[in-house]
Nucleic acid binder design. Structure first.
Lengths: 215, 215
DNA sequence: TGCGTACCGTACCGTACGGTTCGGCATCTT
DNA sequence: AAGATGCCGAACCGTACGGTACGGTACGCA
């Protein structure tokens, strides 16, 4: 597993009290459990044993609370550096496979799905504020890892591509296809996650067929 | 253009009055313009010059109205049969490219995005009812066209694959990547749609590299 | 002419939510 | 001891929404 949950580290990183982190944790739980409708200020206050007054003092308003939730959650996902050592065709394939599995784990996680649903629902009425925040915070980390991996592959003459972004887009599409959207629409996660391993292998194979350096 | 808008045909198909179709049209307009928040019963009634009483008589309740909107909108998208004539490598590529463009046109259309946002927002709190409906109605049509195209390609010995579903999943991922999600999150559609043509060509190239019959 | 039907516009009701205010309690500071 | 601070719990306010009820109107039909 290459993504590490760091407990309350997200709180400290964002300049939040331990208590505030705990409140955000409960709020995320509420959101996961009951969707946006369950994320009421009164509900969060009750679930976290704090007062609405404190919520408004700490986070400003409901949108501030949501933004804090996104930032807090994003702070919990960290990637480990890809070992910059010698990269063989075999280790590259392994790294790509691990990346695929971790990507799916993150995208299809309860909290990620709930936050994406929330941001998408908000996207229509109020600019792309939350959407951009989610995209930035969430994708930056994982995209950086992918970019590093691809770049390492190119340096080792195992991959050939002009644009790393384009290659990453292709890799992403091969791995995810429409799974993310289907999950967002409410499809049962269990079924798809179980049978994903072979799918991930096929995606990696396809990616290597497309971008593997001709030997 | 292979997807045809059929005006009010969707209404008749679903057993709806002309008037009811017009109401759904206004409701869709409201949804596109202002998101879920704008889709209030009073708002729809005002915009469509009808009474709330009629809305409830026709559609039961708000969810019924939304379901009717989805069904109505899905009824407007029709695919044309792929000409079953002789399929050459060149025409296959052309058909795939046209499919890619049409797929993007549909997925990134105003109404489609708005309905997907609505269904995703609803997905958390209330089963997957709307999500499944949207998936069934919207995807069935376009998936059927893709399946027919792929099958024709295999019959002409231009494509080689074991599972048509899997091949379609790959094609979908190559074409769409994460564009759909980014749009749902509120990214500006104009920019991505403009520069899509070369992307679509690359996706088709990649697909043919993966699934083109050897030789 | 009278009656039924379908519809509109508006008013209404209950509820729920975001946000504010206030009294009270515990802890800390001086 | 006395004030200040931070917080909780609850009450409160304005608003907005889903859903219902009612009066009024146009039209078809006997």
């Amino acid at each position: 597993m290459h993504f590490v949950e760091q407990g309350r580290a997200g709180a400290a990183a964002a300049g939040l009290t331990e208590r505030q982190g705990a409140v955000l944790e409960r709020a995320l739980g509420l959101l996961v459990e009951g969707g946006e409708r369950a994320l009421t200020t009164a509900g969060v206050a009750r679930a976290a044993n704090c007062s609405k007054e404190s919520l408004y003092k700490w986070f400003g308003d409901r949108d501030g609370l949501i933004s804090a939730m996104i930032t807090y959650q994003a702070g919990k996902v960290r990637t480990v550096e890809v070992s910059a050592g010698a990269l063989t065709a075999e280790t590259l394939r392994k790294h790509l496979f691990a990346f695929a599995c971790d990507l799916i784990d993150v995208l299809l996680g309860d909290v990620s799905l709930a936050l994406n649903r929330l941001a998408i629902g908000q996207a229509s009425r109020e600019g792309a504020g939350l959407g951009r925040l989610l995209q930035e915070r969430g994708r930056r980390q994982i995209g950086k890892r992918a970019a590093a991996l691809l770049e390492a592959g190119r340096k080792a003459k195992l991959l050939a591509f002009d644009s790393a972004d384009e290659a990453y887009g292709t890799l992403y599409g091969l791995i995810v296809s429409d799974m993310h959207l289907r999950m967002l629409l409410g499809e049962d996660a269990g079924a798809l996650k179980k049978e994903f391993s072979p799918r991930a292998e096929k995606a990696v194979d396809a990616f290597l067929t497309l971008y593997g350096a001709k030997g």
